[in-house]
């Protein structure tokens, strides 16, 4: 048996940290890419009873490799139940049956609003992004939302160009005012660290850094004056089990999943 190489990439740290946030027994609405990697890692490590829900209609999918698309055949073939797309959104998501919504973002702002629609003006965009998909209602109706995204000034902006999915709104107070059923984004995991919303203002605050990352580096990769929690934690490095499992999942996938 070969020893696991314990040196790890920042992406591996991010996937491991995101996976750890998922708890056993939870139901999780999963987006493709980084969220799916983290959710599948969690199911194969500490959260064997995690129910993975994919918007294509797979409830309780148990893929043995990372799905390459939101409707990958392996999702339907391994699911507890396969349902239509209207049923996923109307019967399962909308009534608030799902614990965690796991989302990515092209832009994320100070109040955890997510943009996946356009960079620039909507009518004449600098970059036309894919759009909303299932995210607006996932962000509104899951009991809580985790966001996993690589950190840079391009992504972490003071104000998103377009609110595709609401975090806490433009000034941090919209969620309560709108009476949205879910708590909203409670956790943001990046390749540099971990952010959580301030209990009073809902502004994202740096609560943890990954090993070897200093606070200044995170602040430099953030487009607003990022506040730092007084009891800043350092994320424990990935364990051998976590790294082995993650690498096996990715090797079984064969092709790069992209995002």
């Amino acid at each position: 048996m070969t020893e696991t190489d314990l040196t790890y990439t920042t992406d591996e740290m991010m996937s491991v940290a995101a996976a750890r946030a998922l708890y056993d027994g939870a139901s999780c609405f999963v987006g493709i890419g980084l969220p799916s990697t983290a959710a599948n890692l969690a199911r194969r490590t500490h959260a064997a009873n995690l129910t993975l829900i994919y918007e294509a209609g797979a409830l309780g999918a148990k893929p043995d490799r990372l799905p390459l698309s939101i409707g990958d055949g392996i999702l339907g073939e391994t699911a507890d139940a396969v349902v239509s797309v209207p049923e996923v959104f109307n019967y399962w998501l909308q009534p608030g049956r799902i614990d965690v919504g796991f989302l990515g973002a092209a832009q994320l702002d100070r109040f955890a609003n997510i943009n996946t629609t356009v960079i620039g003006e909507y009518a004449s965009p600098k970059v036309r992004l894919p759009g909303a998909g299932g995210a607006p209602e996932i962000a509104a109706s899951c009991r809580e939302v985790f966001v996993v995204v690589r950190q840079s000034r391009r992504t972490f902006v003071e104000q998103v160009d377009f609110v595709t999915s609401v975090g806490y709104g433009r000034d941090g107070t919209d969620r309560a005012r709108l009476g949205l059923p879910g708590a909203g984004p409670t956790l943001v995991v990046t390749d540099l660290g971990i952010m959580r919303p301030d209990r009073e203002t809902n502004e994202l605050v740096l609560t943890g850094v990954h090993p070897g990352v200093d606070v200044e580096r995170v602040r430099e990769a953030t487009g607003w004056d990022l506040r730092v929690a007084p009891d800043l934690a350092t994320t424990p490095a990935p364990t051998a089990t976590e790294l082995t499992t993650l690498r096996e999942l990715q090797a079984a996938t064969g092709t790069d999943t992209g995002e």
């Binding site: 109307n90 607006p136 509104a140 109706s141 595709t164 609401v166 709108l178």
Partner: peptide, 10 residues
């Protein structure tokens, strides 16, 4: 009718 779009720019 759905519970949707609230708080978004859509």
């Amino acid at each position: 009718v759905l519970r949707g779009y609230a708080g978004t720019d859509l």
